[in-house]
Amino acid sequence: MKKSLIVIFLVIFTLLLSGCWSKRELSDLAIVSALGIDKVNDGYSISVQIINAGEMSENKSSGSQSPVTTYHATGQSVFEAIRKLTASSPRRAYFTHMQLVVFGEEFASEGIAEALDFLARDQAIRSDFNFVVAYNSTAKDILNVLTPIEKLPAKKILNSALASQDAWGSTRFVDTEDLISELGDDDKSTVLSAIELVGDKELGKRPDNVERIETSAVLHFTGLGVFKKDKLIGYLTESESIYYNFLMNNIKSTIINTSCPNEGSITTEIGRSKTTIQGEFEQGIPKINVKIDVEQNVAEVKCAIDLSKEKTLKMIDKKTANFIKENIEKTINTIKDNYQVDILNFGEVLHKEDHKAWDTIKDDWSTMFPELEVNVDVNVKTTGTATLVNSIEKE
Rank of each mutant, 00 (worst) to 15 (best):
I266T: 07
S57C: 03
Q296S: 13
F79W: 14
K156Y: 07
Q123M: 14
E114V: 13
F246V: 04
I324P: 08
H220Y: 13
N249M: 08
D141L: 02
V32K: 00
A167Q: 09
A124H: 10
E280F: 01
S61I: 09
T74E: 07
S89G: 11
I392R: 15
N333E: 15
R126I: 05
V191M: 02
G271V: 01
K140P: 05
D141C: 06
N375Q: 13
A87L: 15
T334I: 07
N159K: 05
V133F: 03
Q278H: 07
A163V: 14
S239A: 14
Y44L: 09
L29Q: 07
T312Y: 03
L146W: 01
K394V: 06
D28S: 13
I343N: 04
S181Y: 09
S4G: 10
E329A: 09
R91W: 01
N41G: 12
T237A: 12
K314T: 12
E310Q: 12
A194D: 00
V290E: 03
I266R: 03
W168M: 14
R24H: 13
F107L: 11
G19L: 08
F129H: 00
L183A: 09
T276Q: 12
I316D: 02
A154I: 06
S18T: 04
S88F: 04
V102L: 05
G204T: 00
T96I: 13
P153Q: 06
K140V: 02
S137F: 01
L388H: 12
E240F: 03
S308Q: 06
A120Q: 11
I316N: 01
T275V: 07
E202R: 06
N59W: 05
A154H: 04
V7S: 15
I233G: 04
L307F: 10
W21R: 12
G347P: 04
N297W: 01
E106P: 03
V210W: 08
G54A: 06
V68H: 02
N322R: 11
A386K: 10
K274M: 08
S193N: 05
L116H: 01
H72T: 12
L5M: 14
R212V: 01
E393S: 14
S47A: 04
L100V: 03
L313E: 06
T360H: 10
M315V: 04
S137Q: 10
S47Q: 01
S62C: 05
L247N: 07
L203I: 08
A30Y: 00
S18E: 05
I195P: 04
L307N: 05
L16R: 10
E282Y: 09
I8V: 15
T275E: 00
T138K: 04
K356Y: 07
N327D: 11
L119D: 06
I233V: 12
S57P: 11
D128K: 10
Y94S: 09
D187C: 09
S89K: 01
D306A: 11
I46S: 07
T334D: 07
L26F: 10
N333M: 15
D42A: 10
N250A: 14
I37K: 02
R83N: 14
I195K: 00
D122W: 00
I251R: 06
N338Y: 01
S181E: 13
K318T: 15
T367W: 01
D337I: 03
T383L: 13
E55S: 02
G223F: 02
L119F: 05
A30V: 02
W358A: 12
T267S: 15
D185W: 01
V7M: 14
